[in-house]
Design a protein around this nucleic acid. Structure first.
Lengths: 119, 119
DNA sequence: AAAACATATTAGTATTTGCTTGTATAAGCT
DNA sequence: AGCTTATACAAGCAAATACTAATATGTTTT
């Protein structure tokens, strides 16, 4: 089902410093990068944290008040988080409620753990 | 041991759509963002994957050949990964060997798991 | 139906990013 | 010592990003 980005590159033995590393699955890379770049921004990270903290759904109106940017910016940020699969959204009347996905929960937990253990 | 960014904001009951979410620890946020933005880039992600794949240390010379950017760009990328605590580096002769940190291992594993489970 | 509210979309712009080229430093080789 | 190799650093620039302001869409209320 997948046949790109193969070719190990280690066909001939040359006098290099070390063995060339294997290639990276470019499908996985695209997915991961979408997630990482979506989370890797002040505004979006904070929105995501706030959404994750309140498990029963947060609406945009309250998120706006919390982060220091315009309504438009919040809307754009949430859209991006949605596209990246980090939040779900449901409409209820004229309000939109956002909830974290499993992806968000897992990543934030990993980050929390890492900060705790601190290697 | 930590006393900033508290204040729940929910002192008065107003007729809003939902309860305002709790604040975000700004120290944690800074740390996480450094990690996320460091990983969230084509070149750096690929370098990191390659470093993580070869557990016994990779040198810059081989990484250069793998990703499609200049030597300088690779050097800058690796520096950034190092600053973010995603790789360690040791000098051996005129070569520099890079290895993944626990942070890298944990995050890449989480990402892999998520792609597998797919929620 | 009009007004007010909640959110999305579009367009424009300032800032940030990630590269390239050129140069510096440092270690091995002859 | 001089040359080559391995990596880092610095300046400049094109492209991507993240915002704001303005406008559009849909919903509720009056």
């Amino acid at each position: 089902m997948e046949e790109d980005a193969i070719a190990d590159g280690a066909t001939e033995e040359a006098e290099t410093c070390c063995a060339p590393p294997g290639d990276v699955d470019s499908d996985a890379m695209a997915t991961d990068l979408q997630v990482l770049t979506a989370m890797g921004n002040d505004t979006r990270y904070e929105l995501l944290r706030r959404i994750a903290n309140a498990d029963d759904g947060v609406c945009v109106c309250d998120l706006e008040a919390a982060v220091g940017v315009s309504q438009s910016a919040v809307s754009q940020a949430l859209s991006r988080l949605y596209t990246a699969g980090l939040v779900t959204r449901r409409k209820e009347g004229s309000w939109r409620y956002y909830e974290p996905t499993e992806t968000t929960a897992a990543l934030l937990e990993t980050l929390d753990d890492l900060r705790g253990t601190h290697e």
